[in-house]
Nucleic acid binder design. Sequence first.
DNA 1: TATTGGATCGCC
DNA 2: GCGATCCAATAG
Length: 174
Amino acid sequence: MTRKALGAKFFERSTLRVARELLGKYLVRRRGGKTRAFLITEVEAYTGKDDMSSHAANGMTKRNQAMFGRSGHWYVYLIYGMYHCLNIVTETHGTPAAVLIRGLAGVSGPGKVCRELGITTALYGKPAAKSSGLWVEDRASRIQKLGFRIRQTARINVGGDEKAKKRRWRFVLA
DNA sequence: TATTGGATCGCC
DNA sequence: GCGATCCAATAG
């Protein structure tokens, strides 16, 4: 069975919708001749100037420019000097938005996701496609999908104003 | 040019 | 609770 990477059509939509629908999809990593697939279990949505918890809250900077770029590309950044965080860009080109991949089945936490899959800023701005070695597939069976239950909470450890902190833009597969 | 602090993790 | 450890962002 041929498996296809989800492309621009999937990611160039409302960030909240993409975030929710990423749960139950698979993050696939190919490196060193080996391919591994992980069920996505936890994500968070971030947008632009309307979202004070977002890196893009104050416009474009060197770090966040990928968030303004084409959807379906990776936004990776270094946090606390030692961990990387992986995001997939959403919305139309020019509209800053992304979904943070916070957890996978068996891998809990955004820093650990990147450590486990060997993700660094080398993937910054690269497409979610087989060509980059990191992409997303819809592998779940119909039966599995019927069993998915989604929990929605406030985002973890974010800054910004109270309004942004209160938004329940974290999605977790129960 | 200098200072600050973060979408984290693991150990105390 | 707190230190590790880097560098982008911001202030000056």
